[in-house]
């Protein structure tokens, strides 16, 4: 069989775009460069904006936290009570 790459298949990687791909660590800005990077956390929108607020918005938002947020979103059905979810941000059920 040959791999497919149609619209349906794209659904498969949409999450990946939020979670994976080259990650530039926030510390690269501090320790290496004058190049400030605005690493944006759209994942947080999906996870619920409050998550972002919990983490002190963007300053402290490193990849680990981002990943955790995604994890929470991903497994939200298991520990729903631990995360007040934004109703419109969820498509499950």
């Amino acid at each position: 069989m040959k791999p497919t790459k149609n619209e349906d298949a794209l659904v498969d990687v949409i999450d990946v775009l939020l979670r994976d791909g080259v990650v530039l660590r926030a510390d690269v800005i501090v320790s290496v460069a004058e190049i400030p990077l605005v690493g944006v956390k759209l994942t947080a929108v999906v996870a619920g904006m409050e998550t972002m607020t919990d983490y002190g918005l963007f300053e402290e938002w490193d990849t680990t936290r981002r990943a955790r947020a995604v994890e929470r979103r991903q497994y939200g059905h298991r520990d729903r009570e631990s995360l007040e979810r934004e109703p419109s941000a969820e498509a499950d059920e």
Partner: peptide
């Protein structure tokens, strides 16, 4: 990942 101390991400 690029950057100092960059490692694999949680869950990936």
């Amino acid at each position: 990942s690029f950057g100092e101390g960059a490692t694999g991400r949680d869950g990936g």
